[in-house]
Measured scan of single mutants.
Amino acid sequence: EDAPSSDDLEQFAKQFKQRRIKLGFTQADVGLALGTLYGNVFSQTTICRFEALQLSFKNMCKLKPLLNKWLEETDSSS
């Protein structure tokens, strides 16, 4: 699987934040939901840093598919 470019990540982080707010979730909600869904709880700080593009590139790449999946799950259930 190709690693996303930093442009991709930036684009995704923006879209993710907009969708999250529109769906009415806090950063902490998302962190907990990831724990429920995938067994990895993320702190509010981590989600905040992801949205602000302040995580390392490697961590951004790791989180992106999880957050993407969460969006898909959340979209389909709302």
Rank of each mutant, 00 (worst) to 15 (best):
V41R: 11
D8C: 06
S43W: 05
L23Y: 01
E72P: 02
S76E: 12
Q15F: 09
G24M: 01
K17M: 07
L55S: 06
W70H: 05
M60G: 02
L37G: 07
L37F: 11
L23E: 04
A3M: 15
E73R: 10
Q18M: 04
Q54S: 09
W70S: 06
E1S: 14
R19N: 10
R19A: 11
L9D: 02
E72K: 11
K64W: 06
F16A: 01
C48V: 09
S43C: 04
E10K: 06
S5A: 13
K22Y: 13
C48S: 14
S77T: 13
S5T: 14
L32N: 05
R19G: 04
D8F: 04
F50K: 00
S5P: 13
L23S: 03
V41N: 14
Q27P: 11
V41E: 13
L53P: 01
L32F: 15
K22P: 00
E72F: 04
S6L: 15
Y38R: 05
Q27L: 06
A52L: 07
W70P: 00
A33P: 02
N68W: 09
P65A: 07
C61F: 03
E1M: 15
L23D: 06
L9W: 05
Q15D: 12
A33L: 12
Q15R: 11
G24T: 01
F12Q: 01
E1L: 14
T74N: 15
Q11F: 10
E72R: 10
R19M: 12
L66I: 13
I21N: 00
K62A: 10
C48I: 14
I21Q: 08
E51F: 01
A33G: 04
L53T: 06
Y38V: 11
Q54D: 12
D29G: 07
V30G: 00
E10F: 10
Q11A: 10
N68M: 13
P65E: 08
Q44W: 03
R20D: 02
D29H: 08
D7Q: 09
T26E: 06
E51R: 04
F16P: 01
A52V: 00
T74E: 09
A3P: 13
D75P: 15
L23F: 08
Q44M: 07
D29L: 03
G35W: 04
K22C: 06
E1V: 14
A33Y: 08
S78Q: 09
G31I: 05
S6A: 15
S77N: 09
D7N: 06
K14V: 06
A28V: 04
Q11T: 13
W70C: 01
Q44T: 14
Q18I: 05
T45Y: 06
V41I: 12
L23P: 06
A13V: 11
N59Y: 01
Q54M: 04
T26S: 10
Q18A: 13
L34C: 05
K14C: 07
S78E: 11
N59H: 14
R19H: 04
I47A: 01
S5R: 14
S43F: 00
S5E: 14
T26C: 06
T74Y: 09
D75A: 12
Y38S: 11
L53V: 11
Y38Q: 08
S78K: 14
K58R: 09
L67C: 05
S76C: 06
T74F: 15
L67I: 06
S43N: 13
